[in-house]
Amino acid sequence: MEFTVSQIARMIDHSILQPQFTSEDVREGCAVAAKYHVASVCVRPSDVPLAVELLHGTDVQVGTVIGFPHGATSTEVKVVETEQAVARGATEIDMVINIGWLRSGDIAAVENEIRAIVQAAGEAPVKVILETAYLTDEEKLAACWAAERAGAAFVKTSTGFAPKGATIDDLALMRSAVSPKVQVKASGGIRSLDTLLAMAAVGVTRFGSSATADILEDLARRQASAPTGRD
């Protein structure tokens, strides 16, 4: 399937998450997001009010991260984080599961926590970050199944802060694990158009990336230089 620049842009969550980023970095990131009309920005929780202000009147959603990046804060804290983020204007929520609980085999606790975040998020879709770098295939499957049972809108590979990000094999596994009503988001190491397109081919519909401009400009150049089929 061939995509337009606009279609690819609407599949990207522009990431503005590095701990050293200043308010000016957030402003610049939001400007990129607005310029290319991406699906959303994904900002640190403290940056939600600024991003909401900067993107008011645009078609870009404001998302944020919960329990980021390790997933080890208590469920109660994650719930409060989520409630506060939504109250401040976040319209998408990316939460990190408790990786230790999952690896310990306590799937019920993982599922209950996801469900609590989904409930706290209200109408905001919840994307469940598995952090696949630390998991076996069996654990990835269990997390995907738990996320769907708990009402998550997406399962997502990575925070971008683990030793390994998204891979085609992991994405294909995750896509096979959930029903069509749950989408798959790839994040971590998505810095080229070719990588994004290969992942879209296995069913990924959302991408977390900070290389938004490079990806979209590359696609625009390719399409501009492509033969038109006319004599």
Rank of each mutant, 00 (worst) to 15 (best):
T195A: 14
G208M: 05
A220G: 01
A213R: 08
R206I: 09
S225N: 09
A211S: 15
T157N: 12
A226F: 13
A152L: 13
W145L: 11
S187R: 12
K140D: 00
A142G: 14
L135R: 10
S179G: 15
P180M: 05
M199R: 09
E131F: 00
A198K: 15
D214G: 04
A186I: 02
I129P: 15
I190E: 05
S176L: 11
S179M: 13
A177D: 03
R149D: 10
P227A: 05
A152E: 12
S209N: 09
I168P: 09
T167R: 05
L219I: 09
L193Y: 07
A150I: 01
D214H: 10
R191L: 11
A153Y: 05
A124C: 14
S179D: 10
A142T: 12
A150V: 09
F207G: 13
T167Q: 07
D170G: 06
I168N: 09
L130R: 08
T228K: 14
I129D: 11
D194M: 08
L130V: 08
F154E: 01
I215W: 08
D214M: 03
E131M: 08
A133Q: 04
K156A: 06
V155M: 07
R221H: 15
S179W: 02
K156L: 03
R175E: 01
M174A: 06
P180R: 11
I190P: 06
S158Y: 06
